[in-house]
Each structure stands twice: as C-alpha cells, then as structure tokens.
Design a protein around this nucleic acid. Structure first.
Lengths: 106, 106
DNA sequence: AGCGAATACTTCGGCGTCCGATATATGGTT
DNA sequence: AACCATATATCGGACGCCGAAGTATTCGCT
C-alpha cells in the first residue's frame, strides 16, 4: 500500500467514531485537524468513490432528506487497518527528524 | 504550505546529514525508511528541480566524475524548517489515531 | 416576506506530482 | 561477454487534489 494523502487520511479518521455523510466528513476533518484540513468538495466526493471502490469505506445507509439523497459512509475493517498503518508510518517518518542531534545546517 | 508527499519528505530528510548527489539520495531514503521508500528516478530528478526552484534545497557543488556531471544538493534553512513542520504535522496526525500526545509508538 | 448563509451532493477541467520506461555511459563482478 | 550497480536526464501516462459552477432546501436574521 502506498502512502496516503492528507485528504484521504482525514476522511478515514473522520469515520473512526462512526458513520457520517459527505458534508459532515468535511466538518469533522476540519475539527480533528484543528482547522488545518479543509477538504474541497471535489476532493471529498471523488475520494469517497475511490475509497468505496477499494473497500476502505462502505455506504452505511442512504436517507432522503427534503427530497435529496444523503449517503452515510462507514469505515471498514480494511479501512481501519489502513489508517492505523498510515498513522504508524507517519510516526516513524516523524522520528527521522526528531530522533537526531541536529541538522546539517547550523 | 500544503502537506508534503512521501517522496518529497524523504528527499529532504536524506539531506539532513549533509549534501548528497541524486543517486545517493535514493539510497539514503531507502535506508532511512527501512527499505520502504524506493524513489523512482523520474520522481527524484523532477522533485530535485522543483525543490531547488522553491528554495528548499540548493545545489551545493558540481563535480565531474568520469566525464559526467554529478550534482550535490544541500538542504536550505527553509527546507529544514519545512521538513520539521512536516514532521510535526505527521506526528499530530498520527495522534488522532493513537490518542494522547507523548504516546510511545512502535 | 425577503435574503444570505449554511447544508448537501454532483460533475468538470486544470494542474501538480509520481512513476515506469527509455536513453546514455562507466566500472566492477561473474 | 553478460550483467549489475552507479549516475543522470527526459517523456508520457495515470492519479489525485482542488476550485468552480450547478442544483436545491432550510434556518436565522432583519
């Protein structure tokens, strides 16, 4: 598995506490990142299709609110494993910088 | 600054211990990542130009070995700052999955 | 009642980055 | 002689991100 982009990672972490619909994922990702990550809608809905296609998330249920569809997604076991692996990968990568005396500069 | 891709991040960390030429960066990135990151040449030389263009790295010196040029790159202050910020970003992101700050991670 | 903002999803085109393939060249090993 | 490692350059395809435009409803404020 390749490393995950920031948008992809935050879509998955947003779903760790339970199913959400698309727009709610945007809000949750912004919350969880301290305002840093603002998913563009084009990114979100594209990524949702892709992640559902690869089985990392799945459609939980579909509601109709005010005549319009609202799709709730949940993270799958594969998705939870993938996001955990990604978190480990990032923690390891961060240690390359933090686990050293100084840089070549200075 | 947007989040950095894995190749970009490992190119910068490879240079933290001192200047290296292109091919040596590939080897160093593979070392530092425990064999995970294998930079494709197309990725490397493209990224090198890009990073030099944005000032995160700079050409340290150029040698001629066996009639062919060998360019050594060094990380700049901006680059060192960027890679440190990126490491922090990743550590923070990992904490969303692993919980509290200061958690020991394998 | 009127209006803007927030909610909510879809689709499109452009752009940046990654990456494998290809080319070129030398030196060491089998 | 064949092959692999070293070393750099470039190209085209693919993938993912993102802003924009479109559509539609509900909520709060004036």
């Amino acid at each position: 598995m390749r490393s995950m982009s920031e948008p992809t990672y935050f879509i998955l972490t947003a779903l760790l506490d339970g199913p959400l619909h698309g727009y709610a994922i945007i809000k949750r990702a912004e919350e969880q990142s301290g305002g840093r990550v603002r998913l563009a809608v084009g990114t979100l809905y594209g990524a949702l299709d892709r992640l559902a296609g690869t089985g990392l998330i799945a459609v939980d249920r579909e509601e109709t609110v005010g005549g319009r569809p609202r799709r709730y997604f949940r993270i799958t076991e594969d998705g939870a494993e993938a996001v955990t692996e990604e978190a480990k990968r990032m923690a390891r990568a961060a240690r390359i910088v933090f686990g050293r005396p100084g840089t070549a500069l200075s």
